[in-house]
Amino acid sequence: MVLYTDGLIEVPGSSIQARQEQVKITLAAHRDVPMEEFMDTLLRSSQEKRNGQPDDICVIGIDV
């Protein structure tokens, strides 16, 4: 389970729906890796999309 604030998916020049879809794709592609590794990948991907533009992001990942 992954919970996140809007800072993860609100990226200037991108639609929120497209970013939500990217989160789903990233989750599906990393479903067999440890949660910590997935979270690093997810945050890195978000930072790359921002092109250096800061925003507050909170992500909580829970293995169930």
Rank of each mutant, 00 (worst) to 15 (best):
R31K: 06
T26P: 01
R31V: 04
H30N: 10
E48Y: 08
L43H: 04
N51V: 12
N51G: 14
V23L: 00
F38S: 00
V23D: 01
A28I: 03
D40V: 14
K49Y: 12
E21I: 05
L43N: 02
V23Y: 00
F38Y: 04
E36N: 07
S46L: 05
K49L: 15
S46W: 01
T41S: 10
V33M: 08
E36Y: 05
V33Q: 13
I25R: 08
E36D: 10
M35Y: 03
E21R: 15
Q47V: 08
F38I: 06
Q22H: 14
L27T: 06
E21F: 10
S46A: 15
K49S: 11
K24P: 00
V33T: 09
Q22P: 07
R31G: 02
A29D: 07
L42K: 02
H30V: 01
D40L: 10
R44C: 10
Q47C: 12
H30K: 04
M35E: 04
K24G: 02
A29I: 00
L42V: 03
V23P: 00
Q47N: 12
L43W: 01
Q47E: 14
R31Q: 06
H30Y: 04
H30M: 06
T41Y: 09
Q22Y: 12
S45Q: 13
D32C: 08
F38C: 00
E48T: 14
V33L: 09
E36S: 07
K24N: 05
F38R: 01
Q22G: 11
T26Q: 11
E21Y: 11
R44Y: 11
R50K: 14
Q22T: 12
V23F: 01
R44F: 07
V33Y: 02
K49V: 06
Q22R: 15
S46C: 15
E37Y: 07
E37Q: 15
E37V: 11
P34N: 06
I25E: 09
Q47F: 07
E48A: 13
R44A: 15
E48C: 09
E37I: 07
E21W: 08
R50Q: 15
I25F: 04
V33P: 01
S45T: 11
S46N: 09
D40T: 11
R31A: 05
N51F: 11
V33S: 09
H30I: 00
M35K: 04
E37W: 03
N51H: 13
M39V: 13
L27G: 01
K24V: 05
R44I: 09
S45H: 10
K24E: 03
E21Q: 14
R50W: 13
I25L: 09
L43S: 02
Q22N: 13
V23C: 01
